[in-house]
């Protein structure tokens, strides 16, 4: 239990994961505005009348009171600020939203304060709730997350020689870190081609704020190319296999 030096503190956080612990409790992984990613035990949260039950569901944005225990932190109170109700009503939003949460968890180290990442997560979940294209929202999230982590792919210049003439960019290589010009693609034996539209769309998604992109529509070609490009790049940079991706491939496609 808690020792005598217990201190409590409050954070505003999104629940990234929530796992059952024993018969009555849950372990939650939170991404907080104040202290980055952290995990905590929510005692009794699996009992339907618990005031922690709804607050410890994935996606929930809430104010949490945490107590530092000897080994684990404990959630002592929570007040929900936003449940993201729209995400609970649509299977594709649940699936893409779960992917966003899992990627956030996989890509960020614990206890690293980063308010910009917290804001990115919250604005992504809000946009996801309102959109009819959750995949587009996810692509924007991936690119902005990579930007924030310092892994941004080259999209408007050649990753090797830095040429910025956009119609000279013909390929995308996760290994070389982004777009390649025709000469560098040929020299490195890179065979796959990518369209100008896909590179321009990726650049737009990684830069501007969500509002400017509300009316953006992806053509089937751009959607497919972006999917492959992001998958290659994330696999190369973050070396993670996401379970939510498997769900998307096997259940949603």
């Amino acid at each position: 239990m808690l020792d005598s030096r217990t201190r409590t503190y409050n954070v505003t956080a999104v629940v990234l994961r929530s796992r059952p612990l024993g018969e009555k409790d849950r372990v939650v992984v939170l991404f907080s505005r104040e202290a980055g990613k952290l995990d905590a035990v929510a005692k009794g949260a699996r009992q339907p009348k618990s005031k922690l039950a709804a607050g410890t569901q994935p996606f929930t944005l809430a104010r949490f009171a945490l107590a530092r225990g000897r080994t684990l932190q404990v959630v002592t109170q929570c007040v929900i600020e936003e449940s993201f109700y729209a995400l609970h009503e649509d299977l594709s939003k649940i699936a893409w939203g779960a992917y966003v949460l899992e990627l956030m968890d996989a890509a960020t180290p614990p206890h690293q304060h980063d308010e910009a990442l917290f804001d990115l997560l919250v604005s992504t979940l809000r946009w996801m709730g309102a959109t009819d294209d959750p995949e587009l929202v996810t692509r924007a999230f991936e690119l902005r997350l990579l930007n924030a982590l310092g892994y941004a792919p080259a999209l408007t210049e050649c990753a090797v020689c830095g040429r910025t003439v956009s119609d000279s960019l013909v390929a995308f290589s996760a290994r070389w870190g982004g777009a390649l010009c025709a000469a560098d693609a040929a020299q490195r034996g890179h065979r796959g081609k990518i369209s100008q539209g896909t590179l321009r769309t990726a650049a737009a998604l990684s830069g501007s704020k969500g509002d400017a992109l509300q009316r953006l529509r992806l053509t089937p070609q751009v959607r497919t190319e972006l999917r492959g490009l992001m998958n290659d790049f994330l696999t190369q940079r973050l070396e993670v296999r996401l379970k939510a991706r498997e769900f998307l491939v096997k259940v949603m496609e």
Partner: peptide
């Protein structure tokens, strides 16, 4: 139950 987060498929 299905779980996109824990990877439980149909």
């Amino acid at each position: 139950l299905l779980s996109p987060i824990e990877g439980v498929l149909p």
